[in-house]
């Protein structure tokens, strides 16, 4: 980092900002009861919560990719009346308090909800199930993927796609061999962001899915509950969550440059691969 290009006060403010984020995490680490750390984080409840969190977050991320990629493509590559409005609606979970999301989901998929009452008559019960956790997580995480992918799609532009089409490539071929490889780094980072958001999901899960060890009590819910009786356990589990988040983000940063150089499936990888570098 060369700070010469920036006014010093910008750098100073940036340092204050960074300290503001890092200091509370450091303060939390200082409170950890190290001799009890291993027993605390390997207790049955903690392991069940961590496994459930990882399982549901992966499922939610898969849902986000399955529906978020088409959503981002439609928002970035088509034009229809009310597109901007639809876009802001889709991004709404980003700014909604999660508990509001939970209430909304309850009135949709709950036993007396809009869709839930129909599902219940078919014998499908969403409430208090792991499915409810995944739905809550996907609901809050989807905008992260859509936002990062849509931005990338706009930045790379349609030039290569147009060239591909004039050379006779069909829509599916253009999508598969030009568009998606171009935005792969953004897709990966969007998916990682979604995963991280899903991992930290608390409010919507608590409101919509309930809390039962092994089926709906994810790590954030376990932390919230442990705080009631054993603050040391809550702090220890919080550190586990921070470490998982840091590892995930770190892995994503490693994957991104590799992804942008990945020539797999692209006929002219070098030139377009440079473009996503600007997407940041």
């Amino acid at each position: 980092m060369n700070t010469a290009a920036l006014p010093r006060w910008v750098v100073a403010a940036a340092v204050v900002g960074a300290v503001f984020v890092v200091l509370p995490l450091a303060a939390m680490t200082l409170r950890i009861d190290w001799p009890r750390f291993i027993p605390l984080v390997t207790s049955e409840g903690a392991r069940a919560a961590l496994l459930l969190s990882l399982r549901t977050s992966v499922s939610a991320t898969i849902l986000c990719v399955l529906f978020g990629v088409p959503l981002a493509l439609v928002l970035a590559r088509t034009s229809f009346p009310g597109r901007r409005f639809v876009r802001s609606l889709v991004l709404l979970p980003l700014v909604l308090p999660p508990v509001v999301g939970g209430i909304a989901l309850l009135y949709t998929f709950g036993r007396r909800g809009l869709i839930g009452s129909g599902l219940a008559s078919l014998g499908i019960d969403v409430a208090f199930s792991t499915t409810a956790v995944v739905l809550a997580q996907a609901f809050v995480a989807l905008p992260f993927l859509v936002l990062s992918l849509e931005g990338a799609l706009r930045t790379v532009g349609t030039r290569y796609e147009a060239v591909g089409a004039t050379l006779g490539a069909g829509r599916w071929t253009v999508l598969r061999r030009i568009t998606l490889p171009l935005v792969l780094p953004a897709l990966v980072s969007g998916a990682v962001l979604s995963f991280a958001r899903a991992l930290g999901e608390f409010g919507a899960t608590l409101t919509f899915a309930g809390s039962l060890q092994g089926s709906t009590r994810t790590l954030p819910l376990e932390i919230y509950l442990q705080r009631e009786t054993d603050p040391d356990a809550a702090v220890a589990l919080s550190l586990v969550l921070v470490v998982v988040a840091v590892v995930v983000v770190g892995v994503a940063h490693r994957v991104r440059p590799l992804g942008s150089l990945d020539p797999r499936g692209t006929a002219s990888p070098k030139a377009p691969a440079a473009a996503p570098g600007r997407v940041d």
Binding site: R112, F128, L212, Y224, L225
Partner: peptide, 21 residues
């Protein structure tokens, strides 16, 4: 054999008033 063990009595009541439980 509860379907959920909530962290506050308000959450329990909410699950009943909403008809989920």
């Amino acid at each position: 054999d509860p379907v959920s063990e909530e962290s506050s009595v308000t959450d329990v009541l909410g699950k009943v008033t909403s008809g989920e439980a």
